[in-house]
Amino acid sequence: MPNASPFERLPNRSRAQVTVFVEDEPVEVCAHDSAAAAVLAAGLLPSRTTPADASPRAPYCLMGVCFECLIEIDGAPNQQGCMIPVRDGMRIRRQCGARDMHGEGAHDHA
């Protein structure tokens, strides 16, 4: 997945890397990144769509307030990506439309 994102990291942070899979593509990210930061670094935009009208959304506040960063992590939907640190082998996918809270799949309401 090409890194076409203008996302920049703070200087002077550890550059230890882990591999996550964003939409099944391996992406090297900093070990201290959140899942939402990995989405931005990978250029995965939009990272979700709204249940009501499929409007595109992406991580916004990155501090757990806005809930625009909802993504699927390791098969679990509705995960607040900005609050979850990456780990080696993590699988991150877009969340399109409404998701069943029990992870049984998407319900298209658009």
Rank of each mutant, 00 (worst) to 15 (best):
Q80V: 10
S14W: 00
G89M: 12
R15A: 05
A37L: 02
P85Y: 01
E28A: 07
P26A: 00
E72K: 15
P77A: 06
D74L: 05
C61Y: 09
D53V: 10
D24S: 10
C96G: 06
D33F: 07
Q79E: 08
D53R: 15
P2T: 09
C82R: 09
P85N: 02
N3K: 10
R94M: 01
R13V: 07
I71Q: 15
A41C: 01
S34F: 01
V22K: 00
G89I: 13
M63N: 11
R48E: 03
Q79I: 09
Q95F: 02
P46H: 00
D100P: 03
I71T: 13
R57V: 12
P6T: 08
Q95K: 09
Q79A: 01
A31C: 08
A36N: 03
M83T: 14
V18M: 03
E23W: 05
T50A: 09
C61E: 00
I73V: 15
G75Q: 14
A98Q: 15
P11H: 05
L40R: 12
E25W: 10
G64S: 00
P59M: 00
A31I: 11
V18C: 07
G64E: 01
A52N: 12
R57K: 15
E8T: 10
R91W: 02
R13C: 05
E23P: 07
D100M: 04
Q17I: 03
V18H: 06
L62Q: 09
G81F: 11
P77D: 00
E25Y: 06
Q79S: 05
C69D: 07
D108Y: 07
V86M: 09
V27N: 02
R57G: 10
H102G: 03
S47C: 13
A16P: 02
R9G: 02
F21Q: 04
F21Y: 13
S55E: 01
V20K: 03
G97S: 01
R91T: 00
E68N: 14
E104P: 04
D88N: 04
Q17E: 12
R57T: 11
A110V: 14
P26T: 07
G97C: 05
G75Y: 14
V29Q: 00
E68M: 13
R15Y: 06
F67M: 11
P77S: 02
H102F: 11
T50V: 13
V27E: 00
C66R: 14
C96K: 14
D74R: 11
Q79T: 06
L44F: 02
G43S: 06
N3M: 13
G81K: 02
